Amino acid sequence: MRVRRLTDQEEQKLQQVVRRGSTSSMRYRRAMMLLASAGQHRVPVIARLVQADEDPVREATSG
């Protein structure tokens, strides 16, 4: 399962969250998940990237 294609504006906003970090670790991790999913990475790869179980990754990237 993957997210829809991101608009340039959406992608830039998510990249800002990742680059600058965030006061919320959940916001940071979700931004990482969405960017990775939009980049065509599969759930197991994204889960390893953000050091999470696969179920929360599926939930975050399902829309």
Rank of each mutant, 00 (worst) to 15 (best):
H41T: 00
M33I: 06
M32W: 09
E10I: 02
S37T: 01
T23I: 00
A60K: 03
S37N: 12
T61G: 05
T61E: 10
V43Y: 01
A47R: 13
H41K: 12
Q12W: 05
R2N: 08
R5F: 15
R48N: 11
L35R: 06
R4N: 15
Q9I: 13
R29C: 08
D53P: 09
M26T: 00
D55C: 08
R58P: 11
S25K: 13
E10S: 02
V43M: 01
E10D: 03
K13G: 01
R27M: 11
R42Q: 15
L49V: 07
S25W: 08
R4C: 09
A60P: 11
T61H: 10
V43I: 08
S22R: 04
S62C: 04
Q9P: 06
Q12D: 10
G39P: 05
L34F: 13
P44T: 04
G39Q: 14
A52K: 12
R20M: 14
L14W: 07
Q15M: 02
R5H: 15
R29E: 07
S22F: 01
V17R: 05
R58Q: 10
L6M: 10
I46E: 09
R4G: 06
Q40T: 00
D8W: 03
R48I: 01
Q51S: 12
R2M: 03
Q40I: 00
G21K: 13
S37E: 03
M33Q: 07
S62H: 01
I46R: 09
Q15H: 04
P56F: 02
R5A: 15
T7H: 03
I46A: 07
K13H: 12
L49Y: 12
G63T: 09
Q16F: 09
L35C: 10
L14R: 04
A52S: 01
L34P: 04
A52Y: 06
A38R: 07
I46D: 11
M26R: 02
V57W: 02
V57D: 01
Q15G: 00
R27V: 12
R19V: 14
R58W: 13
